[in-house]
């Protein structure tokens, strides 16, 4: 309890760094985004790693749109992670892709995970932002700092890749 009688947690907030409030508000979205891209098992590490790195930046105060910046950091971190994993275990991934040969039950978590493995990290992020966050194409483009054309193209590719298994 602080001297003002406020709960300890409130008192702690006053000592927090400036980015804490933004992060706390964005954390659930970032976790869902990370989970959509890399899965539950790696989501915590991904967010902790990428956000932890961003908030240590000496030029953090110059970032205009921190929520968008954090989202991009998570997507980029996931891309690097998936790419690194892909180099290490391309064979396993090829086998994994072959697993998805029949229709996918969109309510079955395992099916969904396997189906999402057919998409690139950026495509997973775009699909998440469009279909879960209900963001518009321009909003997604701003959030990920890519062109609207890229968003449309990647979303179309994602749908093409999932179309046959989501019949």
């Amino acid at each position: 309890m602080s001297s003002t009688g406020e709960p300890a947690t409130e008192a702690r907030h006053t000592d927090e760094p400036p980015w804490a409030a933004v992060y706390r508000a964005e954390a659930p979205r970032l976790m869902r985004l990370a989970t959509a891209i890399v899965g539950r098992a790696d989501a915590y590490d991904l967010v902790a790693d990428t956000v932890g790195r961003v908030v240590r930046r000496s030029d953090l105060h110059t970032i205009d749109d921190l929520p968008a910046y954090l989202a991009r950091a998570v997507v980029n971190g996931a891309t690097d992670r998936v790419r690194s994993d892909r180099r290490r275990s391309d064979r396993e991934e090829r086998v994994g892709r072959l697993v998805v040969t029949s229709s996918v039950d969109p309510t079955n978590a395992l099916d969904v995970r396997r189906a999402l493995d057919r998409l690139s990290p950026q495509q997973r992020a775009i699909a998440y932002l469009v279909y879960w966050e209900d963001m518009t194409i321009p909003d997604v483009a701003h959030r990920l700092d890519v062109s609207e054309g890229t968003v449309r193209r990647q979303l179309a590719r994602a749908k093409d890749r999932l179309r046959e298994v989501l019949k």
């Binding site: 954390a27 659930p28 970032l30 976790m31 869902r32 990370a34 989970t35 959509a36 539950r40 989501a43 915590y44 967010v47 902790a48 956000v51 932890g52 969109p106 309510t107 079955n108 978590a109 969904v112 995970r113 999402l116 998440y128 879960w132």
Partner: peptide, 10 residues
């Protein structure tokens, strides 16, 4: 489904 089991954030 994909995000339903998102873990707690750091």
């Amino acid at each position: 489904t994909a995000t339903a089991d998102a873990p707690e954030a750091p």
